[in-house]
Design a protein around this nucleic acid. Sequence first.
DNA 1: GTGAAAGCGCTAACAA
DNA 2: TTGTTAGCGCTTTCAC
Lengths: 391, 391
Amino acid sequence: MLERSGKSILIVDLFLYLHLKEIKIWIKSNFTGYEDLEWEYVVLVKKKRKYMRSGQVTIKDIAKELGISASTVSRALKDHPDISVKTKEAVNALAKAWHYKPNAVALSLRSSKSNVIGVIIPEIVHHFFSSVISGIEKIAHDGGYNVMIFQSDESYERELDNTQALLSSRVDGILVSMSKETKDYDHFRELRRNGIPIVFFDRICNELSSDNVIVDDFTGAFSAVQHLIDTGCKRIAHLSAPQHMLLGQNRLQGYRQALIKNKHKIDEDLIIKCDSFDEAKELVPLLLNLPERPDAIFAVNELTAAGALSVVKKAGLRVPEDISIIGFTDGIVSRVTDPALTTLEQHGHEVGLKATELLLERIKDRSMDYEPVTRVVKTSLVVRESTRYKE
Amino acid sequence: MLERSGKSILIVDLFLYLHLKEIKIWIKSNFTGYEDLEWEYVVLVKKKRKYMRSGQVTIKDIAKELGISASTVSRALKDHPDISVKTKEAVNALAKAWHYKPNAVALSLRSSKSNVIGVIIPEIVHHFFSSVISGIEKIAHDGGYNVMIFQSDESYERELDNTQALLSSRVDGILVSMSKETKDYDHFRELRRNGIPIVFFDRICNELSSDNVIVDDFTGAFSAVQHLIDTGCKRIAHLSAPQHMLLGQNRLQGYRQALIKNKHKIDEDLIIKCDSFDEAKELVPLLLNLPERPDAIFAVNELTAAGALSVVKKAGLRVPEDISIIGFTDGIVSRVTDPALTTLEQHGHEVGLKATELLLERIKDRSMDYEPVTRVVKTSLVVRESTRYKE
DNA sequence: GTGAAAGCGCTAACAA
DNA sequence: TTGTTAGCGCTTTCAC
């Protein structure tokens, strides 16, 4: 592997890919007599390892080295009972020494199973979605699957591209939270026609009879409003999400039903479409200027709640004494505002876990004839300082 | 495809995977005379499409249907000049009609190129990391690559597992931000030995001569402190990250140099290891009780800054009049606190873009003999309300 | 107990 | 202009 040739020329039969700097250090530390080595005298001879093609060791390499057949190596590696102990030992030893790693690509091709699941989400930069992914990743890896991520950026076009890429990649299953733009669902039907199971989460679609995992928006909203009523609030406003999103509808319904159940009258002036920090800054002042101003605000997400909080405080009103505020959480924002916001925990991680568990079941089943199910992840009320104490 | 057999039995030669409900609707809407169809009378005969094996259409399927060879189909699909227009048209038409999608797995196997890049990050649920991923995803997809995500959960063990999975998957390149636990780097060397280029970002390592993309921690910290000095602060405390992290060292150095440059003396009592919301709640009170209390706090990240803010306010001190606070941002927290926090924007998205660009260059190059480079993403000072106005 | 051969889907060199 | 063949890495019959 190392031989001297000529006066001060060192020939390195190099089969490792290393940076030049590291090679120098490696030579100096592994071979005596070259401590004073000057770089200029080193000649690098790049050579592939015998039998080694694309960088990584293959079963064939091991077979050739040991003078046995590839199939024997394959069997030895999976501890097949037919193979003699001797052979097994030799194979395993060499595989370890040579850092053999099965080629997942070849396995996929042979078995028509990629052990990859694809995920399409609107935006990763969103605490809720990133926690979902974190849950997905956990279950997937425990089950031997890898996770491929695709962002739709809330664009239908990109979502379409993503499904095509997923189809090409031959993923074993797909998790989807739809973009806001999506109104046509043929791309999802195509996936199913190809036998790829899909589980939708959070942003689901009623027109598709599919597996779903959703947050319990209705009950969450209901209990938010119930909490406000229980703590003495009379006029409760709702900052809502767009109504073409199921989530927006359900939360609004929860709000309405809670009022009805408690025999409060519903004032449509107190319901406004407002679902971002900046929108809250703009629209909440209008609510405060109402002849009979609200004494509580239920916001559809935490950033909107934070925006509302900031407006209310600037107006010189106290929270929660004058106005209670409650949000629907997907992050840490609620913990750091002053006062900290009471919210409904959405458990994104849990959504990810549940959705992936369901998907893996479907993948295992193979048959596409199951009855679609919808699993619900419960929200939980986290009482902090932006709502009053129970009387 | 549809034929009547017996009295009211409908035989459907089914080659599409659909849910039962949808099949019913499909039959009713596509065939007259079955409007009053009762489900019980439908017999489903599951049959694979002729020539179609694993669900998806292959080149072979098209070849057989058209009575030509697979290679001709392959060439026609890539618009090879040798192929006659007629053949091309026929092939393309059928490919489209049958929704042919090239099998990426087969392509990978053949070309030893998976068009996948792997990403290892400590935690997705972190605004900084998720915005990095968002940047990665963008560049990767524009370059025709898919992205596989792995979380190390700050665990060395899991990081090791991840590199093994990456090796098996034969990804074309890897982006890594190391776990806090990682002190041994052989697993990364092994990746390189196998010819897989790696680019590290944010959490990098000096012992490895590798490509890096980092945030300009030193200059960021320096300008944070400079800003505090410019606005009249005299005793500036630093809530720092652990010193075994390069990031922690660099920010501390920036802090020190800014003080030195401005001829402030460095008080070691004002430097404490404290890098989370809860730690700030616990430790900042000690700072405030110092005989000469600080009049400014530079926190190593935004959550720590938020914690400090909350403590300072609870102690009855005004921000920024009595104490200025500045953070190092990776999220929206700074915008929603009261007062909103002045911070250094870290530009995670940018880090993702730069790192991926660099990685794709390396993948294109193939040769591993390049000189490693370190690219720096500049931070920018965002002045909000938690620091005083310039005098 | 082991080997030879075929095939997963695709492409490219070589033939015709 | 098109077809044949071989091979990417692996597994799995079927032989011996």
